[in-house]
Write a protein that binds this DNA or RNA. Structure first.
Length: 230
DNA sequence: GCGACAG
DNA sequence: ATCTTGTCGC
C-alpha cells in the first residue's frame, strides 16, 4: 500500500508534520463501513526497548464472537523519531504497519492504543493508521490529549459521555469498569461516532481495557512473560 | 509569555 | 513509554 506519503522521514520539521496531519485528517471517514457481523478484530499497541532505541509493536487477532486469540505478532524496528505530543503517530506507525502485515490476515476492525480523532488536528494514531491501511479502526486511550467532558459520568459499567473540543464532539469518555478512570474512545476511520463506545464495550470483559487492546498491551510491554521466561 | 501535553 | 515495592481498595 501507499504509506510513504503518510510517513515522511523525521527531519525535525514539526510544522510540516502538522500540515500533513491536516491533509490526512480530511481522508478520515466517520461512517460505519465494516462487515456485519464482525468476523475478526485486532488490537494494537507499542512498547520500547533499549531505552527507546527499538520500537516494538504487538498485534493480536481475535475471533469477534468467541474472543479467542487467532494469531499474535510482534514487530521490532529501530526508533526513528522522539515522542512529541500530538505527533505520536509518526513515531509509532511504522512498527504498527509491520505488525499488521505479519498477521495471517487483516481484521475487520482494529482497536489502537491511543486516540482516533480526539486529537488537536483530528488525526490521532488510530485515525492515521486507518487512513494509511484503509481499515476500520477505533482509538482507545487512557488519558485525554485535547477536549473535555461537560457532563458527569456515571460510575456504572458501560456508561459514557461526550468528549468535546469547543462545540464539536471528538469522542467519548467510557466507563468500561466501575471504580476505574474512564477510557477515552474515539473513531479512527470508517466508524461512526455513536458506534465507537458500543463496539469498544462489546470486547470489554472484567478489565478496564477491551480485550484486543489489553492483550496487545501485555505483549508490547512484555507483561505476558511468566516467571522463568525472558 | 505560560501551561498542557496520547504513548 | 519506561524505571520499580509495597500498598490501598473493591
Amino acid at each position: 500500500m501507499d504509506t510513504a506519503p503518510s510517513l515522511p522521514d523525521w527531519a525535525g520539521d514539526t510544522a510540516a508534520l502538522r500540515n500533513l496531519q491536516r491533509q490526512l485528517a480530511q481522508q478520515v471517514e466517520l461512517r460505519d463501513d465494516f462487515p456485519k457481523p464482525l468476523r475478526t478484530v485486532a488490537g494494537f499497541d507499542v512498547g520500547f526497548e533499549d531505552g527507546g532505541a527499538t520500537t516494538r509493536a504487538a498485534a493480536v487477532l481475535l475471533d469477534a464472537d468467541t474472543r479467542e486469540v487467532i494469531d499474535q505478532q510482534v514487530a521490532r524496528l529501530p526508533t526513528r523519531m522522539p515522542y512529541i505530543p500530538g505527533l505520536l503517530s509518526f513515531r509509532e506507525l511504522p512498527a504498527l504497519l509491520e505488525a499488521l502485515a505479519m498477521l495471517e490476515h487483516a481484521p475487520d476492525l482494529a482497536f489502537i492504543d491511543g486516540h482516533g480523532i480526539a486529537h488537536p488536528r483530528r488525526l490521532g494514531i488510530a485515525a492515521h493508521f486507518g487512513v494509511a491501511t484503509n481499515l476500520p479502526c477505533i482509538g482507545v486511550a487512557k488519558k485525554i490529549l485535547v477536549g473535555e467532558a461537560r457532563m458527569a459520568l456515571h460510575d456504572m459499567r458501560g456508561a459514557f459521555t461526550p468528549l468535546r473540543d469547543g462545540r464539536e464532539q471528538i469522542g467519548w469518555l467510557l466507563r468500561s469498569k466501575p471504580g476505574c478512570l474512564p477510557l477515552i474512545v474515539s473513531p479512527g476511520h470508517k466508524v461512526a461516532m455513536p458506534s465507537a463506545p458500543e463496539l469498544a464495550m462489546r470486547f470489554v470483559t472484567t478489565y478496564r481495557l477491551p480485550e484486543p487492546t489489553r492483550l496487545a498491551d501485555r505483549i508490547a510491554s512484555r507483561r505476558d512473560r511468566k516467571r522463568g521466561e525472558r
